[in-house]
Simulated scan of single mutants.
Amino acid sequence: MADESFSVTDVSFTSDDTKATGETSQTQSSDDFGQSTVPLTVVSLNQQADSFRQQQKAVPELPSAKFQYSVWHDLKFVEVRGDELKAPRVRKAPVEEEKVLYKVVDEENKAVHHSIMGKEKTQHKIKMENWESAKYVSLSYQELNDRYQQNNMYRILARLRLVEYLNLPHNSITDISQFSFPKCEFLNLNNNYIASFKSLPKLPCIKYLLLETNSVGSLDGLRRFRSSGLEELYLAANPITFVPGYRSRVFQILPRLLMLDGIPKLESDLIKEPDLEDNNKGCVVA
C-alpha cells in the first residue's frame, strides 16, 4: 500500500480514493517519528474552505445601513421626544458622516432627514431631546470610544436634573463625579471602568446602585452614601470583593443597607472587622 502520510513541509497531494470518499489512510515508518504530519482529509477541507471564501461574493448592504449614523431628531416628520423613548441612540456621528446624512433618500427618492442647519438645528435638537423632563433614561452601549462622543454623552448627563431611573451600562465610563442627579433612585453602571466610589456622581436619593464588573478596589468614598438611604448595592466582579471581611466592612460603613450583591444582610455580616479602613486596596490571594 502506498504511504499517504506526509509532513507539513512535503508537497500535498490527494489520491483518487480520497477524492471519491473523503477518507485517507496513513502508514508511518520508524523514520517518520518526530515529524509533524497532517491528514490529507484536513488539507482537502482547508482547500475547499479557501476556494469557498474566494468565490463568496460580498454581502449586500442592508437597507437599514443608510441609517447607521441617524439620530431620531434628525429625521423628518418626527415628533417624539427623548424623554418618551425607552433606549434612544444618542451616539454622535463623525463630522464627515453628518454631511452624508442629508443625501440619504427613501424609495421615492425623497430626503429622509430634515434640512435644518446652524443654530436652528441646535435649538431643534435641544427641544426634541427634552432631557430636562426625563425621569427614565437608558443610554447603554453608546460606544464612547472618541472624545467627541464622550462630550456628547456628558452634555446629556448634565441635563438630567429630574431623572429617577438611569441606565448607563457598557459605556466605558471612568469618572462622572462632576454630575449630580438629585432625584435619582436607581443607577446602573455595570460593565464600565469605574475604579473608585469617588468617581460616582452626587446621588442624595439613591436606593439601588449597580456597579458590577468595574474596577473598584477600595471602599474609600463609600461613606458618602451613608445618608442617602441606599438599600441595595451590587459590586460583584470588582477587586474589592476579594478583600477578607468584605461584606462586614460594607455593612459597617452602611448600617442601613439591606442587600449586598443580591444577598440580604446576614447575622455574620454584623461581625465587626478589626482594623477597618476605607482605603483598604487590592485583593488578597490565599
Rank of each mutant, 00 (worst) to 15 (best):
Q149W: 02
H170Y: 14
E61R: 09
F181V: 14
G82C: 09
S228V: 04
E212D: 06
P182Q: 13
K86H: 07
L276W: 10
L209C: 07
Y69A: 06
S172P: 00
R161Y: 02
E23A: 14
M128S: 05
I240E: 01
S133P: 02
R53P: 01
K127P: 00
N152I: 00
G82S: 13
N280E: 07
V71N: 15
F67C: 02
V112Q: 05
V284Y: 03
E107G: 15
S196P: 00
K125I: 04
L276S: 01
K125R: 11
N190P: 03
I206V: 15
E273G: 00
L166G: 07
D146S: 08
A87M: 10
I271Y: 10
W72M: 10
K57F: 09
Q142G: 03
E79S: 13
V95E: 14
L200Q: 01
I156C: 03
K272N: 06
P201G: 14
S248I: 02
Y141R: 08
N279Y: 09
L166I: 09
S30Y: 12
V71K: 15
L266V: 02
E98W: 15
E96I: 11
W131L: 04
N188H: 08
K66L: 07
L209V: 07
S36T: 12
V59P: 07
L157Y: 13
L45W: 05
N130I: 04
E273I: 13
A158P: 00
V95T: 13
T37G: 05
L254V: 08
V38E: 08
S7I: 02
K119F: 06
F251G: 02
E23W: 12
S70L: 14
K265L: 08
V285N: 06
F242R: 11
R89L: 10
S172E: 10
D261E: 10
F186M: 11
Y141L: 05
A2V: 10
N214A: 04
D17M: 13
G262T: 11
A158K: 10
Q56A: 15
F179W: 09
E23C: 09
Y208V: 09
Y136I: 08
K119R: 13
G245P: 09
S180V: 14
T213C: 03
E212I: 05
Y148I: 12
T18Q: 15
R226S: 09
V100Y: 10
K207T: 04
A49M: 12
D31L: 06
V250E: 05
R161Q: 13
